[in-house]
């Protein structure tokens, strides 16, 4: 299934004029996700950039019902919304289905919201969880999260004289979701809109929980030129830093095959958060990053049953 441009809703459910930055990846991720709407829709938002910048009272950019209450509870709130619809639907005997999307950043998802998400996935609520991943807590000023990749300099994993940015790997978030044996989970990148929007629609059509993990670069936090947001989102895929795949009923499928990966330096050098690893004294970090990427890519290829 691929959604063509003609099928996309021409409605802008996220109105322009919100206060997200120029070149903001998450704003693109949000707008595109809403393009996949197949009917009435409600969004529940975890605390984060998208939440604060779209709803500064008395304004709101949301042309659909939208709820924010706290940071770590988007999935639990979605579960409650679903239960409410179900219970009231029983009484009224109506079939007016309203889709539910829970939207959270990587901090609200990988870290503080993972428990609520795990619970909601296990219970099988009919909703779509979209994690827009900009690889750190950008709203509070670029602090590392469980989604920050090795070597990235953030304000809480700064590149110092001794410690070269974040130590350790980014979590395998989709792997965690897949372990709940849900029907649908996928990665996506705002650099590949057709793939992303199609996946959101697919996720909406699942009768149960579904998860989309979309890479959405943050120029401010990545210390990159805002003009390069989409370029970076593409390069992350083309360098195999961020593999694009989906998992249907436990079966992995590679969606974007990269035969000849672009050199990872092409991706890293556009970002100030990796500037320090080009210092010869941190050469081993660059090597470790490259090794991480290769290992992960090979792992995904194996899971997708694709020969390198």
């Amino acid at each position: 299934m691929v959604i063509s441009l003609k099928e996309l809703t021409t409605k802008e459910l996220l109105a322009p004029g919100h206060r997200l930055c120029a070149g903001c990846g998450p704003s693109i991720a949000t707008r595109m996700a809403l393009k996949a709407a197949r009917g009435p829709l409600v969004v529940t938002n975890a605390t984060g950039c998208v939440e604060v910048s779209t709803t500064i009272f008395p304004y709101t950019a949301w042309r659909i019902p939208w709820i924010h209450s706290l940071f770590e509870n988007a999935a639990a709130t979605a579960a409650g919304i679903e239960a409410g619809f179900k219970a009231l639907g029983k009484r009224k005997n109506t079939k007016n289905h309203i889709d539910i999307i829970a939207l959270g950043g990587d901090g609200g998802t990988f870290d503080i919201g993972i428990q609520a998400l795990s619970g909601a996935l296990e219970r099988g609520h009919d909703f779509v969880y979209i994690c827009y991943d900009n690889e750190a807590y950008m709203n509070t000023g670029i602090q590392r999260s469980g989604a920050t990749p090795r070597g990235a300099s953030t304000t809480t994993s700064p590149a110092g004289e001794i410690i070269p940015g974040k130590r350790g790997l980014k979590k395998d978030f989709i792997g965690i979701c897949v372990a709940h044996q849900i029907e649908y989970a996928a990665t996506a990148s705002i650099g590949f809109p057709n793939d992303y929007i199609t996946k959101v629609r697919k996720a909406l059509e699942v009768n149960g929980p579904a998860v989309i993990h979309v890479l959405a670069p943050c120029p401010l936090g990545w210390r990159a030129d805002p003009i390069n947001t989409v370029k970076l989102a593409k390069l992350a895929v083309q360098t195999t830093v961020f593999p694009i795949y989906e998992v249907e009923d436990g079966k992995y499928k590679l969606n974007i095959r990269i035969k000849k990966p672009i050199e990872v330096e092409e991706y890293l050098k556009l970002q100030g958060r990796f500037r320090h690893i080009f210092n010869p004294k941190f050469r081993d970090v660059l090597e470790a990053i490259k090794q991480d990427i290769t290992t992960n890519w090979e792992r995904i290829l194996r899971l997708c049953n694709v020969n390198p």
Binding site: T44, I67, S69, L70, E72, N73, A75, A76, T77, A78, A79, G80, I81, E82, A83, G84, F85, K86, A87, L88, K90, R91, Q115, A116, S118, G119, A120, E122, R123
Partner: peptide, 28 residues
Amino acid sequence: IDSEFVCVESEHSALSACIGASLTGARV
């Protein structure tokens, strides 16, 4: 009773789910 019982994984989620449900117009 025909209530929906959401047996959540923590009290934090219990009340969060109640917020979501309450905003649908349900009695919670």
